[in-house]
């Protein structure tokens, strides 16, 4: 730890500290059946889907291309509902 480089000190007591970002081990993808699929032809690159995703698992690839990380996507469908040009479809056939 930054404040105590000395190795002879004890570790923090059990369960007092948790490592940052350790939630990544919890794959929430199986929570939902439907997943979003983008029609990049329709996409305008407005970034709404990426901005509103509660999981933060949608990424911007290029100007008008987005995709979701199905390992974490819970399938809520907020991105599809909020897309101003209906470029996102919720589907079970996403693989």
């Amino acid at each position: 730890m930054s404040t105590s480089q000395a190795s002879n000190r004890r570790k923090p007591p059990f369960a007092v500290v948790t490592r940052p970002g350790s939630s990544l081990r919890n794959k929430t993808g199986p929570w939902g059946i439907q997943k979003p699929v983008w029609d990049w032809e329709k996409c305008t690159g407005c970034n709404t889907c990426e901005a509103i995703c509660p999981e933060g698992c949608i990424r911007h690839l290029e100007k008008k291309q987005y995709e979701a990380d199905y390992d974490y996507c819970k399938g809520c469908g907020m991105c599809a509902a909020a897309c101003p040009v209906n470029a996102i479809t919720m589907t079970t056939e996403h693989r």
């Binding site: 970002g21 929430t28 509660p54 819970k74």
Partner: peptide, 13 residues
Amino acid sequence: LPGHRACAGCGQA
């Protein structure tokens, strides 16, 4: 980061 346990569609998250 992802992997949190908020309900699907959580406005707070």
